[in-house]
Write a protein that binds this DNA or RNA. Structure first.
Length: 210
DNA sequence: AATCAGGACAACCGCTATGAT
DNA sequence: CATCATAGCGGTTGTCCTGAT
């Protein structure tokens, strides 16, 4: 799992790594990814940790196929914003920029070309349909907003929670249970049983390891 | 049944923006 | 004001899966 000392791991994440990451994000919050990466014992870069969290582990994410409405929305928003994936993603709660980007790359681009194709652009007609999906002017807050709807999503969350050994997670995206410490190889647990946010600074914290 | 092509998705890389010191 | 660290974004690549031949 965890590679050689000092070696940064790359490639697919293991369940164990996911578990560790979720746990440390819960403790430290979604910030200071570099620090989190060091402290967690994951031999990953902060960047990699953030990406994994944002694109896969975040409890607010939808998992599964795009609905036709979402497809249409992506199409419309791409018309409007171009390749501003983050911007587009912000209008599609529960979807990540990466997901949308991938999705676009595969079929939407093709679809868009087809629709544009020989005749006029679809944008005007699709816009009206789009209003229904309350995109555009309506500023959707964030991913939490849709977590309650999608059965796919709920299913995934339950699956993920059980996979990670948690019983439930609350509305702010935190799992309410204790970490299954026995499966945690990180030295953190030996040195710092106290919540990490109690620790003043990483310099101090790091002393525990070095 | 084997293999090939395309789709779907995860992850990495480089660059830029922003905030802290 | 300049510099450094961190976060975020968009592009790209790699791998696995699935359906067609």
């Amino acid at each position: 799992m965890v590679g050689e000392r000092g070696e940064i791991r790359k490639g697919p994440w293991t369940e164990q790594e996911d578990l560790q990451l979720v746990w440390f994000v819960r403790l430290l919050g979604e910030r200071r990814w570099d620090f989190l990466a060091k402290v967690s014992g994951l031999n990953r870069t902060g960047k990699s940790c953030r990406l994994r969290w944002v694109n896969y582990l975040h409890p607010g994410l939808k998992h599964g196929r795009m609905t036709p409405e979402e497809e249409q929305l992506v199409l419309d928003l791409h018309e409007k914003y171009g390749n501003r994936w983050a911007k587009i993603a912000s209008k599609l709660p529960g979807r990540t920029d990466n997901e949308i980007k991938n999705y676009w790359r595969t079929h939407m681009r093709k679809k868009a070309q087809e629709e544009k194709g020989p005749s006029s652009s679809p944008s005007s007609s699709s816009m009206s349909h789009n209003n229904e999906a309350q995109s555009e002017s309506t500023e959707l807050t964030d991913i939490e907003e849709t977590t309650n709807g999608d059965p796919n999503d709920q299913l995934w969350q339950v699956e993920m929670a059980s996979k990670l050994g948690f019983e439930e997670y609350n509305e702010i995206g935190c799992y309410n249970n204790s970490m299954p410490v026995n499966s945690m190889p990180s030295p953190v647990w030996e040195y710092n049983p106290e919540p990490l946010w109690m620790i003043d600074d990483h310099a101090e914290f790091k002393q525990g390891f070095n």
